[in-house]
Design a protein around this nucleic acid. Structure first.
Length: 143
DNA sequence: GCCAACGTTGGC
DNA sequence: GCCAACGTTGGC
């Protein structure tokens, strides 16, 4: 299964809010970027991803999974171009992994988080997934 | 709060 | 279809 990374500013939508939304999950609305949208179109049910706090925190704080395939973004009713998937919280990172840690790890130098700073929904390779999980203290990373 | 990077928009 | 202007993102 593919892996992803979702950025959110905690002041607009935080990890705590995502967890509070429970198993039903939430639409990942508001993406207005074609690459990010295409990533969401490629998502499959059960795909795991990292939840990253941008601007404030700058760290991977949790694991989420896709619980609905891409559908029209309800916050873009007048513009059929924009779609989003739904995601739900799976678990906390035992130790949040900071952007600083990621940049300092040579194995992660090709991560989109580093190379495509502004992409808000990005793919994560299997190797990157395992490495960040390891750094975060997850001994048995979810597939 | 600043500003660089960069994606999108819109005039031509 | 180019490209300048503009707006937004996001690290610092």
């Amino acid at each position: 299964m593919a892996h992803w990374l979702y950025k959110s500013e905690p002041s607009s939508w935080s990890w705590q809010q995502q967890k509070d939304a429970g198993a039903k999950g939430t639409e990942w609305t508001g993406v207005r970027n074609y690459l990010a949208r295409n990533n969401m179109r490629a998502m499959q049910i059960g795909d795991k991803g990292f939840f990253y706090h941008s601007n404030d925190g700058l760290e991977v704080v949790g694991i989420v999974e896709v619980c609905a395939l891409a559908h029209p973004d309800s916050t873009a009713k007048d513009d059929p171009r924009w779609e989003c998937a739904d995601i739900r919280a799976v678990r906390d990172m035992p130790n949040p992994v900071t952007l600083k840690d990621i940049k300092a790890n040579p194995k992660l130098s090709q991560m989109a988080l580093v190379t495509s700073m502004r992409l808000s929904v990005q793919p994560v390779t299997d190797d990157e997934w395992l490495e960040v999980c390891r750094m975060g203290g997850l001994d048995n990373p979810p597939a």
